[in-house]
Amino acid sequence: MIVFVRFNSSHGFPVEVDSDTSIFQLKEVVAKRQGVPADQLRVIFAGKELRNDWTVQNCDLDQQSIVHIVQRPWRKGQEMNATGGDDPRNAAGGCEREPQSLTRVDLSSSVLPGDSVGLAVILHTDSRKDSPPAGSPAGRSIYNSFYVYCKGPCQRVQPGKLRVQCSTCRQATLTLTQGPSCWDDVLIPNRMSGECQSPHCPGTSAEFFFKCGAHPTSDKETSVALHLIATNSRNITCITCTDVRSPVLVFQCNSRHVICLDCFHLYCVTRLNDRQFVHDPQLGYSLPCVAGCPNSLIKELHHFRILGEEQYNRYQQYGAEECVLQMGGVLCPRPGCGAGLLPEPDQRKVTCEGGNGLGCGFAFCRECKEAYHEGECSAVFEASGTTTQAYRVDERAAEQARWEAASKETIKKTTKPCPRCHVPVEKNGGCMHMKCPQPQCRLEWCWNCGCEWNRVCMGDHWFDV
């Protein structure tokens, strides 16, 4: 396979590697080409510095992935760790964990309700045991953590790749202090920090972006993250068709209702045909949960890209028209025109101005929308079919299609509260000796007794199943 190397943020060049090629071997190839010592090179990928003893497969490097290699003399205490030698983080029983690669970060837990604080980093599902597709590297999971809308060759929703760059020099040479644990960490600028490894760059702020994971991409090709779309790892039924499908869209209502993408497309087109989208002054033209839940309008309007190009163009047109109407304007009634106009409040005669090729020149009556006339309008008909009709959803289907309910059931079956801080902690095999993952707590306690870890627990039921 081919990976592209950008040395000291210059133009990239291809390097041929195998899945079992080590990072140090990659350094040696680059060092020979650039005429520099291999031990002064640092390989940066997806916000993480890659260790010498890791392989291309370990690092989730795919065909035509772009890695950054910078030349920086080692500072005291760094060289041993980078070589894969006596790194205290690798000691058996050590409590410190390697910062998780962005290629394996899962933010789907952050669609849980606000009262489930902490689960994004504490609760991990076991539903990723799908067998890898044919042709994928051994052991590589097909679980997708992110979804994007690819405006490039795909023109559809695709699995996405999370990447990070330095907000100062805009190069992907920043190593994160810690990985993101929720969508806010990724979507809110300057929320996460790190250290830029580019020479002479003092940058410390992280800037995240997404790429389409279905095809090789260049540095400049980015895609918009659709953070309401998630892999259906909890096997929730769709609120409309009641099938279990994946991926799904999880509405931001209190129940976190789930809808499959085909039904979401149908829901949007139906509402669009009836012009029953909601115009929100802050958000724009949007839709609420299909069950009509309060405070559930979709905030990231790129989710409506699921409509496809033709329907999305209609959505944008109707949204612009609705904006004009909300501002007190009118639409030209001549067939084939429909231009938005903003006449004076007491102006009865409205002319669709033909300047700049935008208007048709038609003069019409503001009251009856017919060709302009003197005197009273002959008839004014009330528009028919403008009443909002509820999208029919079966109550039982709505009850079963809740992301929140599956989460709470998982928590109930696989977790116990920490005796000190009461945060839910998952036990997935292993011994009875637990350690609270909350940095402010870190209590060592017994899963069996529910009390602080002691010699009695150690001698009596340390390794009970």
Rank of each mutant, 00 (worst) to 15 (best):
L283E: 08
P216F: 08
M458R: 15
L331Q: 06
L272H: 02
D262E: 09
Q171L: 06
F362G: 05
C201Q: 00
C323E: 15
R128F: 12
T240R: 07
C449L: 00
P88I: 12
G459N: 15
G450R: 02
V105M: 14
S101Q: 11
S255Y: 09
S198T: 13
E426H: 12
G338I: 04
L187C: 06
T386G: 10
N454Y: 01
S65D: 08
G85F: 13
T217G: 10
H200P: 05
V3F: 05
Q171D: 10
A371T: 10
E28M: 06
P113T: 13
S136I: 12
P199G: 07
D243K: 12
K161H: 09
D106R: 07
N454G: 02
P437N: 10
R89Q: 14
M327W: 06
L342Q: 08
N254Q: 14
Y372W: 07
Q78G: 13
V17W: 00
C196T: 01
H227M: 09
C352N: 02
L261N: 02
K220Y: 09
V244R: 07
K76W: 14
L358P: 14
S286M: 01
I298R: 01
H11D: 05
R156V: 06
D184K: 08
T410Q: 09
G284M: 02
G319S: 10
S127F: 10
D346I: 10
N81F: 15
G359D: 08
H227E: 15
Q197M: 12
H433M: 05
S127H: 11
R442S: 11
P294C: 07
V269N: 04
K211S: 14
P343R: 06
L261G: 02
W445I: 03
L266S: 10
I2W: 07
H11Q: 05
S218L: 09
L107M: 13
C360S: 03
G85H: 13
A82D: 09
T103C: 11
N254F: 09
K161Q: 11
D464M: 13
V30K: 00
V121L: 11
P132S: 13
Y312D: 02
R163G: 15
H215T: 00
A206V: 05
L341A: 09
P335E: 05
D184G: 06
Q282P: 09
H11I: 05
A31M: 02
D115R: 07
G336Y: 09
V330Y: 06
D20V: 04
G179S: 12
E221W: 06
G84D: 12
E382K: 14
E195A: 12
Q197G: 10
C59M: 05
Q40P: 03
P216L: 08
R191M: 10
L261C: 05
R396H: 12
D185R: 01
F364L: 04
P132R: 12
C150G: 01
A363E: 14
F7P: 02
G359N: 10
K412R: 10
Q197S: 14
N52I: 00
T237A: 14
L307D: 00
W54Y: 06
L176A: 03
N144A: 05
V56R: 00
H373W: 02
K27R: 04
A390N: 14
H303W: 01
D39E: 13
G139A: 10
N448I: 08
Q155I: 04
M432D: 02
P417Q: 11
G94L: 14
Q158G: 06
V3N: 03
T414P: 13
G135L: 12
V157S: 03
C457W: 01
D126F: 05
P439N: 14
W74F: 13
S136Q: 12
P216C: 09
G35S: 08
T204R: 08
P294A: 14
G336Q: 07
N232V: 01
N81Y: 15
S167E: 05
R140F: 10
A82T: 12
L307C: 12
A397C: 11
W447Y: 10
C289V: 01
A225C: 06
C212K: 00
R402F: 04
L228E: 02
Y285V: 04
C182S: 12
V111I: 12
A291L: 08
G152A: 13
E195D: 08
T388L: 13
K416M: 12
Q165Y: 09
S205A: 11
F7H: 05
V465T: 03
L358A: 15
Q438S: 04
K32T: 10
T415E: 11
P153M: 09
V258D: 02
P343D: 05
P132Y: 10
H257K: 00
G354N: 12
L307Q: 01
C238S: 00
F304S: 01
Q311Y: 04
L61W: 03
H279E: 10
Y267F: 06
H265V: 07
G385E: 09
F24P: 02
C268L: 04
M80I: 13
L226S: 00
Q317D: 07
D60E: 14
Q252N: 12
L50E: 01
D126L: 07
V29Y: 14
F209D: 10
P294V: 11
N58S: 13
E444C: 06
V425G: 13
F362Y: 10
D460I: 12
L102E: 14
E96W: 09
H422T: 13
V423Y: 13
K369N: 07
M432I: 04
F209H: 11
C154G: 00
R305N: 08
N190T: 07
N273S: 04
C166H: 00
S116R: 10
L26M: 05
V465S: 06
G114V: 11
N313F: 15
V186P: 00
A339D: 05
L342C: 08
S109Y: 05
E353G: 09
T204C: 05
C418W: 01
L162Q: 01
N273H: 03
H302M: 10
